[in-house]
Amino acid sequence: MIRSLSVVAEGPGRYISWGVVQISVANLTIIVAMIVLFVLALVVPFPSGHGEEADQERHQK
């Protein structure tokens, strides 16, 4: 019973304040993770094998 109540009565989240900006640590973590994912999507090479270049390579072989 106490365990289930503790789920209902969760403690307040942690917040970071910077001037007029106030954001929860959870939200900030998600935003940072999304930006990291976005940058990774731009710089990590995509495994080739289905593009036109791969088709041309197959034709040359």
Binding site: F38, A41, V44, F46, H50, G51, E53, D55
Partner: peptide, 14 residues
């Protein structure tokens, strides 16, 4: 079943 070569990037997966 085929796309232009520039689509071979993770940013096009989202």
């Amino acid at each position: 079943d085929r796309q232009p070569v520039y689509v071979a990037s993770w940013i096009y997966v989202f």
